[in-house]
Design a protein around this nucleic acid. Structure first.
Length: 542
DNA sequence: TAAAGGCGTCG
DNA sequence: CGACGCCT
């Protein structure tokens, strides 16, 4: 026996605490192998076994396979009996201190007759959901389960063979594992099933998106794009921008980015992004991404912010008040703005992409009405992602100008007339709703709303922008984007002491115009000292 | 450490 | 008018 004592320097925290006979038999087996066993962190050293300074503490998830869906932050916090801190990342500090492994680490180690490396059995903390309601219920259920099961079997049969059977089954499994290697494949299969499924989901996702991305670093770009979108949707706009800029840097490389050291030297890539690049290359996963996607707080903020007119402040406020679903919001929030109500009404429609071909249809439809029924001298362009050549668009952006017309009230009147025509029954109420209230006498040069091209279609977001002719160049740049491109060239302007907006290019200090009449974009590019870029080349960062 | 800029809506 | 959100 002495030579088989492999866990001599180990201290196991067994979670959750299971009191079934089989669990206790297992615990005794671990102890025979030299391990000290506890059920939570705070009881270490309180029992007969004292912690030695060289003891390696390992948190072992018992019955991992059947519990994996139930494990979340509150579950672990409660099991480990640690101080609860509601910040999303508090578990990280524990994990840094003590490894968390699935129980097959013990099983496989026993089979191998030696302690196997923890890494390959490590429980991925990034999967841990922060979800108090589910886990509280589950913990209650769990604490009863084994006693309940035993009681039922005892009632069925007073001699208790059922109990014995449970015990035999579980210890059998372990003994089989110890005794024979023929089970090795089965164990492997059983325990890797779920991970394989995760990988397949990821792969499908990856394949779908990677159609649009090629090059030696497409995997990194894929993950960084996911991170960018995740951060955008929870209101972390600087992180969003930084990821997009990093993608821009990486997508220019013609060689695969392999190491931290290579990455850190590149512009727009700092320590944390370089580490993530290394993680992606090693594991083909990004734990932070899975954390964000599975964290109840982040996914709820994400959900709320997809409502038009709900930003980070309101989403956080709702989250803090305990709201978790769109239904909660509809029922319990009594001060929704009219735009937010529309955002909920059209939640699905406005979160769907629009095929490029449909945008073309809208363009033809609006152009026709504008020229025939409003003013034949108008010039009408589709902007945004459409002008940048993308196959799908988030919305429909229409810029309208009139040659040599700088009269804003005339332009406003044109817009009012156009909108009222598009709202009319003559055109099947094409405009369904307004997000910027532009009445017939509105002086606004903008209109945002929802529109319907035909009965079978979805309601689409449409934006109109009336532009004085002298502002056309700056407006074309602004309304073409993308957002990151705009920020980059505006930053270039700042560095030259200038200010670039949709109105024009001015001197930062005096506010005077740099260019009197900038009808075209090229003049502005020239003044900034940068080469003209076609709209298709302004898709910065994915 | 800094990070784009203008404008509409709400209270 | 400040805070918030939206547009690229």
């Amino acid at each position: 026996m002495p030579e088989s004592v492999i866990f001599l320097d180990y201290l196991f925290i067994l979670v959750p605490k299971l009191v079934s006979k089989s669990a206790i038999v297992k615990r005794q087996l671990y102890e025979k192998q030299g391990a000290k066993c506890f059920y939570n962190l705070s009881s270490i050293g309180k029992g007969k076994d004292q912690k030695n300074s060289n003891d390696k503490v390992v948190i072992v998830l018992q019955n991992y396979k059947s519990l994996r869906d139930k494990i979340n932050k509150d579950f672990l916090v409660k099991c480990l009996d640690i101080e609860y801190d509601d910040r999303s990342f508090s578990l990280k500090s524990i994990v840094l201190k003590y490894p968390i492994v699935k129980n097959d680490w013990i099983v496989e180690s026993l089979k191998a007759g030696k302690v196997l490396p923890l890494q390959q059995f490590a429980y991925d903390i990034s999967h841990v959901r922060v979800d108090s309601e589910i886990s509280q219920d589950y913990l209650l259920e769990l604490s009863d389960r084994s006693t309940k099961a035993r009681k039922i079997s005892e009632i069925k049969n007073q001699d208790g063979p059922a109990t014995k059977q449970i015990k035999l089954e579980d210890t059998d499994e372990l003994e089989k594992a110890l005794a024979s290697l023929s089970n090795r494949e089965k164990f492997k299969r059983d325990n890797q099933d779920n991970d394989d499924e995760d990988d397949e989901d990821l792969l499908a996702d990856y394949m779908a998106v990677s159609k649009n991305v090629s090059g030696p670093n497409k995997e990194i770009i894929f993950f960084f794009n996911k991170m960018a979108n995740e951060y955008k949707q929870v209101g972390e706009s600087y992180k969003y921008v930084n990821y997009r800029k990093a993608i821009n840097t990486i997508s220019k490389l013609d060689y695969p980015l392999k190491t931290y050291d290579e990455a850190i030297k590149l512009p727009n890539i700092g320590k944390s992004l370089a580490l993530k690049i290394e993680e992606i290359n090693k594991t083909h996963k990004l734990s932070k991404l899975f954390f964000l996607q599975n964290d109840i707080k982040y996914s709820t903020l994400n959900k709320f912010m997809k409502i038009y007119s709900v930003g980070p402040t309101i989403a956080k406020n709702w989250y803090d008040r305990g709201y978790r679903t769109i239904e909660d919001i509809e029922k319990k929030v009594d001060n929704l703005t009219s735009n937010q109500k529309l955002g909920i009404k059209y939640y699905n429609d406005w979160n769907s992409k629009i095929p490029r071909e449909e945008v073309t249809q809208h363009y033809e439809f609006v152009k026709n009405i504008a020229l025939k029924e409003v003013d034949s001298k108008l010039e009408i362009f589709i902007m945004g992602s459409y002008r940048r050549g993308l196959p799908e668009c988030g919305d429909i952006d229409i810029l309208i100008t009139k040659k040599n017309c700088n009269d804003k009230s005339e332009l406003a009147a044109i817009l009012s007339k156009l909108i009222s025509r598009l709202k009319s029954k003559d055109h099947n109420n094409y405009i369904q709703c307004s997000l910027i209230h532009s009445g017939i006498n509105s002086k606004s040069l903008k209109f945002y709303g929802g529109c319907l091209i035909n009965e079978n279609s979805k309601c689409r977001r449409i934006d109109f922008l009336m532009v004085p002719y002298e502002e056309l160049g700056a407006s074309l740049i602004y309304f073409t984007g993308n957002d990151i491109f705009n920020r980059i060239i505006r930053t270039i302007a700042i560095k030259k002491g200038l200010n670039l907006s949709n109105i024009g290019l001015t001197f930062k200090k005096t506010g005077e115009k740099c260019i009197e009449n900038s009808h075209d974009e090229k003049t502005i590019f020239d003044y900034l000292g940068i080469k003209y870029r076609n709209p298709e080349d302004r898709n910065i960062g994915y």
